[in-house]
Design a protein around this nucleic acid. Structure first.
Lengths: 116, 116
DNA sequence: CTCGTACTACGAGATTCAACGTACCACTGC
DNA sequence: GCAGTGGTACGTTGAATCTCGTAGTACGAG
């Protein structure tokens, strides 16, 4: 074969809701859960997509999937698959446009000693 | 008796949590409920204490009490009794100090057609 | 093809939440 | 005193939420 960069990593996007159709109380409810808020904080700190398994959450795999799904369905994060793993990313810009200042205000809050 | 203004209305305050001890996820959860968010919006629009019964909520008395209690316990509102009724007030200034920009950002969101 | 990795979907259990009715208390006005 | 108003507290019920285990899919390495 010509080169060794033949195959791009196959970023497959998953379906995401249109943020214009998300009422603010859904976002608040999604972030009103310590575990999910922690995920969002990590994502914001990282500033780039993160592998689901690199959060070091202390719950089972199926429980993580559940929380990531809620975050995705409430428009807070977007996810795409790359190879064998799934990456999550904060929809920071869109969120800022839809709910100006909201995410910033929440993230500015001090952390209650990150669950390690 | 001497005069008819003898008795001041007897503003009796109720116990409220110290906002410094409220983690942000509690506030988010409290506001992540449409009915409670509606109450907070009304309070913000009024800009002054409101009688519990003047919200015109379409739930039973005991349910209102329940939601007001949650808002009070999560530090969002304060309540005091005056005569025979109880008034609620947004803890706007304290909230702004504890979580700068948060309440503003939330209230700036358009309302999904106020439940009438 | 087989194995291991990374994650999902489904079903089940425990806990929490939202709504209600009833009973009750404090105050007002008659 | 007695009734009415405005609200709480308690117990209950149904729904939603959170958690997990199991089974299964999709991919990459060998």
């Amino acid at each position: 074969m010509s080169t060794n960069v033949r195959r791009a990593p196959a970023k497959k996007a998953l379906p995401h809701p249109d943020l214009r159709e998300i009422p603010v109380h859904l976002v608040l409810r999604a972030l009103g859960e310590p575990l999910r808020l922690g995920i969002v904080r990590s994502l914001a700190r990282a500033g780039r997509p993160m592998n689901c398994s690199s959060f070091g959450l202390s719950v089972s795999k199926s429980t993580s999937t559940y929380h990531f799904k809620i975050l995705r369905e409430s428009g807070v994060i977007s996810q795409f698959e790359e190879g064998t793993s799934r990456y999550s990313e904060l929809r920071e810009t869109e969120l800022e446009q839809r709910f100006p200042g909201l995410l910033t205000a929440i993230l500015a809050t001090e952390e209650p000693a990150a669950a390690e």
